[in-house]
Design a protein around this nucleic acid. Structure first.
Lengths: 298, 298
DNA sequence: TTTTTTATTGCAGCATTTGCAACATTCAGT
DNA sequence: ACTGAATGTTGCAAATGCTGCAATAAAAAA
């Protein structure tokens, strides 16, 4: 039994659905299935009564849930205590995130961190999310907020915070683009697109174009999702940005989301760090604080 | 954090000695070292203050020990409860062990088992320990007591119960052998040996002969350690048997241990089972009961 | 019946863990 | 001070175990 199995069990005991839980825990259904099976073997008791259609907690499962909750809480509490107690950490830590992130969840994260480690100075740099991974790899920052890449480079660790859909947005003001969009079918290959210069969002969009056999009309390539929102808001074309960016944008009411036949794979936004940088107590402190915050959310 | 790490930590917190603990936990010192390091990383605190000469528990370590003890106890208690509750197990389970084992620890084991599962019928066969592994492999018995082989066959699981040294024994009564043994140096190649026909004890002894460049004088090959004790007691020669067998032998006062320059690698006596047989709830019940007993001993 | 949903299993690839051996460090004894 | 023994850690190759994909099984819905 390890803590990951415990977390998975707890989540599953709430959803009662392998698919949902496995997705939330970022493992495949098969892995989750085997995790639970292992747990049951070690325990010598069945935790879930499952038929391929329904999953229900057994009596044993209910009892185990209490144990799991208590143990997990106990562990986290202890970890906090031990991290605060021994040495009053001092120093500097470098963070990198997009403007949107700094507006949204980064605020809560930093407050929690400052409360726990008031003597660590935080240097926060904002910039294009597409560069975040590279910044970490080059050790130009300690921890960055980034969308989880399709293939995580080996020396990196990732910890997800929130998932947000990638959405198509269009201007609300009257402009040529608006007219084109109201046609049926929509002449996608003629519509001007405002896209990221590079990065995961660009990759996903390119994939979407290919799978629709479209040769897109790229009107502008810009760096940073926020800039895309601006240009779209001004009526230059259609863009694709994470939902989070839309919600936190001051131009929110100048644009609208548009539906498409297929949905782009959502962004899994989280923290990214170079494994070896976790040796540094300061970096580790931030990483663990974030982890605690995440665990509480579940 | 998993339970194994917890057990290792607890043991180490008592011995304060990596070598001792790693041996007791059946892992190499390096593995233990890494286990503890991992634990410390996950926890973000140092558990042991160690210099290559001394190991002491830190303040954090003391706090963590309480957590570890509580968690482990909690887990085991729950496992007991869950294993008893759901179904009253009935049926038959086949055990195989040596006569010595049945006299010594097997008694306690069976009592614990009968208390917990009064409706499981135990069929206990006694015989030569050297055959135990084979009996399990051939599925002629469910669980056997055996010395841990140098290389455990893959489909088998092993759980150790007790370690016992392999000792040289000689008759006490006056006989030719006794005279030879009192010479200096001892003429090993002329002394008659009473040895196992096959099995791990034989293997270890052969190895000892080779490493001393001796061509042994084998007087008799017998099956079963108990028989060796008998023949040695009667003055037929010198033998090698596990300490446990000596202590439980009615002929204990007819023989004496003799010292040699190098000591034979001790026997690690424990339970052995075919992995797939653990699917059977009855077999699993016994296996887990034994595990609980072992955990309590620590 | 066919389709859809969803947990499980075979299998191959891969990451983690393991143990050995070499190393570093400290202490005891000369 | 020097040598030798004891002991925790680290580099590295090998093995073990875990993971995800794809196929499967089973049951409900259409």
């Amino acid at each position: 039994m390890d803590l990951r199995a415990l977390k998975q069990f707890l989540h599953l005991s709430q959803t009662l659905h392998y698919g949902k839980t496995s997705e939330a825990m970022h493992v495949s259904p098969s892995t989750l299935s085997r995790s639970i099976t292992r747990l049951e073997e070690e325990l010598g008791a069945t935790l879930f009564e499952r038929d391929n259609r329904t999953v229900v907690l057994t009596q044993a499962g209910r009892q185990f849930r209490e144990f799991a909750e208590a143990t997990l809480a106990h562990w986290q509490e202890l970890r906090h205590k031990l991290q605060n107690d021994p040495i009053e950490l001092r120093g500097q830590i470098r963070l990198y995130c997009s403007v949107t992130a700094s507006y949204s969840f980064m605020l809560g994260m930093l407050t929690a961190f400052r409360t726990r480690f008031p003597n660590i100075e935080v240097v926060l740099e904002t910039g294009d999310a597409a560069q975040a991974i590279q910044k970490v790899m080059d050790d130009e920052t300690d921890i960055a907020v980034a969308p989880r890449p399709d293939h995580l480079p080996n020396p990196l660790s990732f910890q997800s915070i929130v998932e947000t859909p990638l959405e198509f947005i269009a201007p609300i003001i009257d402009c040529p683009v608006k007219a084109q969009l109201s046609q049926n079918p929509v002449p996608w290959s003629q519509i001007p697109f405002v896209v990221s210069e590079y990065g995961l969002a660009r990759k996903r969009l390119d994939h979407w174009f290919r799978s629709h056999s479209l040769k897109p009309h790229i009107y502008a390539q810009v760096a940073g999702h926020e800039a895309i929102v601006s240009m779209v808001g001004l009526g230059f074309g259609v863009g694709v940005v994470p939902g989070l960016v839309i919600e936190n944008s001051p131009l929110k009411n100048k644009i609208e989301r548009i539906q498409t036949d297929t949905v782009l794979e959502p962004f899994d936004v989280g923290l990214c760090v170079l494994n070896r940088r976790l040796q540094d107590p300061l970096v580790n402190a931030f990483w663990q604080t974030a982890k605690d915050l995440g665990d509480q959310a579940h």
